[in-house]
């Protein structure tokens, strides 16, 4: 079984993001890290590979300036077998649909039985790319999986909903997106880190894949998030909890 996990290298979220003033694109340093939400997809993929045994492989697929490959190496150190990176200057600032088209071309070329992705990236937060990708690959999309099970050539997931979960099943090939609660991602160990340096990383361009990127999205302007307002203090005269409950209901958290 050939499992592909879509991963993204992003600027370290611990440091403030900088935008290119001309284009409003996020400035991408050479040293990018693995998007934290992608560690869950990689872990789900690795667990499936371990369950299936020698016939299974895990390939990372990423559209990203390669840079030092730090983020990709993180995922390889966890245990992925190889990586395909689409690194092309013309993809700078690509929108979600363009990303989906590029990844679809790479996945079709390389072949796959199951594609795993996170629900959304931590730098872009569009949250639509995986479904676009499933459509372009013409495979079923199982989204927001909080539990993943393989049953022969079928994949079954518990799909997180607001009220609980649905059980959804599909035949392979398929695509699934995983939520961050789905598994506890492993830490790479030192052996994994050393091996990661030797694992194959193929770099491709749009021309290699025969795709022509046309981004439809233009960022008109960017506004900073308004500074947080001071909170409201509720005096408790015995029934303070009712006011707190009302506030929480108003905020639609309960």
């Amino acid at each position: 079984m050939k499992i592909a996990v879509c991963v993204k290298q992003i600027p370290d979220p611990a440091t403030p993001y900088e935008l290119d003033p001309g284009t409003n694109f996020v400035a991408r340093p050479d040293d990018q890290v693995l998007d934290d939400t992608d560690r869950y997809g990689v872990e789900v993929g690795l667990q499936l590979v371990e369950e299936i045994g020698e016939d299974a492989t895990l390939t990372l697929v990423s559209m990203s300036p390669s840079g030092t490959l730090q983020g990709i190496r993180q995922a390889l150190a966890m245990g992925a077998d190889r990586a395909i990176i689409i690194d092309d200057g013309s993809l700078r600032g690509a929108d979600a649909l363009t990303t989906a088209k590029v990844l679809a071309a790479a996945l079709k070329e390389d072949g796959f039985d199951l594609v795993i992705a996170g629900t959304e990236s931590t730098d872009g937060y569009a949250g639509v790319m995986p479904q676009q990708l499933a459509e372009l690959l013409d495979v079923p999309s199982l989204s927001f999986a909080r539990k993943v099970e393989r049953d022969g050539d079928k994949i079954r997931v518990e799909r997180q909903t607001q009220a609980g979960y649905n059980v959804v099943e599909a035949s392979l090939p398929a695509l699934l997106t995983v939520t961050s609660g789905v598994v506890e991602p492993r830490y790479p160990n030192f052996k994994g880190i050393m091996q990661a340096k030797k694992k194959p990383v193929e770099t491709k361009t749009c021309a290699d894949l025969g795709v022509e990127p046309v981004s439809q999205q233009i960022i008109q302007s960017v506004e900073p998030i308004p500074a947080r307002q001071a909170g409201e203090i509720v005096e408790d005269e015995g029934e303070g909890y009712l006011k707190i409950v009302a506030k929480l209901e108003e905020a639609k958290v309960i």
């Binding site: 730090q70 190496r73 993180q74 150190a77 830490y187 790479p188 160990n189 030192f190 880190i193 050393m194 340096k197």
Partner: peptide, 14 residues
Amino acid sequence: ADEHESFRKVVRDF
């Protein structure tokens, strides 16, 4: 070496 520094990051996260 790079691998020691990468490993340091992992152990620090842990």
